[in-house]
Design a protein around this nucleic acid. Sequence first.
DNA 1: CCGATGACTTGAA
DNA 2: CTTCAAGCCATCG
Length: 124
Amino acid sequence: MPNLCYTMYLMKKEENNFFEKVYEIARLIPTGRVTSYGAIARCIGSAQSARMVGWALNKCSSAKEYVPAHRVVNRTGLLTGKSHFDGSNLMKELLENEGIVIEENQIIDFDKVFWDPMKEMEIV
DNA sequence: CCGATGACTTGAA
DNA sequence: CTTCAAGCCATCG
């Protein structure tokens, strides 16, 4: 039975877990699928904070577990964040390795590989 | 506390 | 069709 301080700590952490939520959703993305920043933002409640999602992913190194940030792109399927990965085309290679076709930083079958976090929430 | 920043999104011209 | 500007809001200095 946790004491009051610990409970409060958890509650506060639950309140400010913007990063954790982003990471949680990102980790749910199946292999070979992608999603958008906005979709994740809506899923965690901050509907208009798509920028925050990307910003949180920027600090994904601070996450305890690995976060497949390469599976998150902008709503058009453009690999806007590829420059933030180590290699210039690391993100592209990772995605292509999962069967996603990319050309000029643009995911070709974006509507096919798009994965909606909300859909997964319904199942759970 | 205030202003700047950002891996975005949306709607209007 | 393309281009542009404004809104968004959690961090950081």
